[in-house]
Design a protein around this nucleic acid. Structure first.
Lengths: 129, 129
DNA sequence: CCGTATCCTCGGAGATACTG
DNA sequence: CAGTATCTCCGAGGATACGG
């Protein structure tokens, strides 16, 4: 049996299943990246923007707000001039970060295989055509 | 130190980092769902479509092809009439499924907290406004 | 420095109709 | 049953400019 136990407990196939929401949050292109970087201690708007190549100010703020709204990131505004705002992972954010560990590990461990699979697939596809 | 060890090894912030690709694949709305369901033994086009509420034929085929191209899913066409095609996880697909386990567990364990956090956040937001 | 507001476009994704 | 082709639309997301 290849089916892990957790597949029985969660069924995101149904739209009424909670996991759909969170799957969307996690599936977001920038969420994981921001979570990752904040976890590394990068905690200011500008720093995040510089660190995460390719993100726009709009998406940064937007995703930050989403993470904050979901209780994964805490925002601390020092209300000074010039503005000073710091972001940090909440305990829940940290726990998610840890839960994501195996996935990142998997990416590291299998990236080469995926690339190879892609090459083989396009070869096969070309043959067929 | 809250930073897990794996954050040092992977840096998806850079566009030249392999993990960006895979993050996109995993981040896809349907990929995880399809992976999950195929892992449960649902292996035919029609069955998948029926099982995964809300997916269109187009997205099903499209995502299936992507998963196949990345070596996560195997497609077996029996070339009969009427058509009979079966999908299954490859060993690599299974390993990814397992790597995703903690994430799904986290979703189960923390969904209630997230909902609560959302409620508090909107309350706070309303106050501010 | 930290954002918000606005505009605009590009392609993701559904619906539909058709084929082997 | 499995899948492709086409058309269309909607909105995510970038660029830009401005405000506190």
């Amino acid at each position: 049996m290849n089916v892990p136990d957790w597949v029985e407990k969660v069924d995101p196939c149904k739209s009424d299943c909670p996991s759909r929401d969170l799957l969307d949050l996690i599936g977001d292109r920038w969420s994981l990246l921001i979570l990752l970087v904040i976890g590394q201690g990068v905690n200011r708007n500008g720093a995040l923007k510089r660190r995460i190549g390719g993100i726009s100010q709009k998406m940064l703020t937007q995703t930050l707000r989403a993470l904050e709204a979901n209780g994964l990131v805490a925002r601390h505004d020092f209300a000074t001039v010039p503005p000073h705002v710091e972001y940090a992972l909440t305990p829940m954010g940290i726990s998610l970060q840890h839960a994501l560990g195996p996935m990142f590990h998997w990416i590291q461990d299998h990236y080469a295989d995926v690339v190879k699979a892609r090459a083989e697939f396009s070869t096969r596809t070309q043959q067929a055509a």
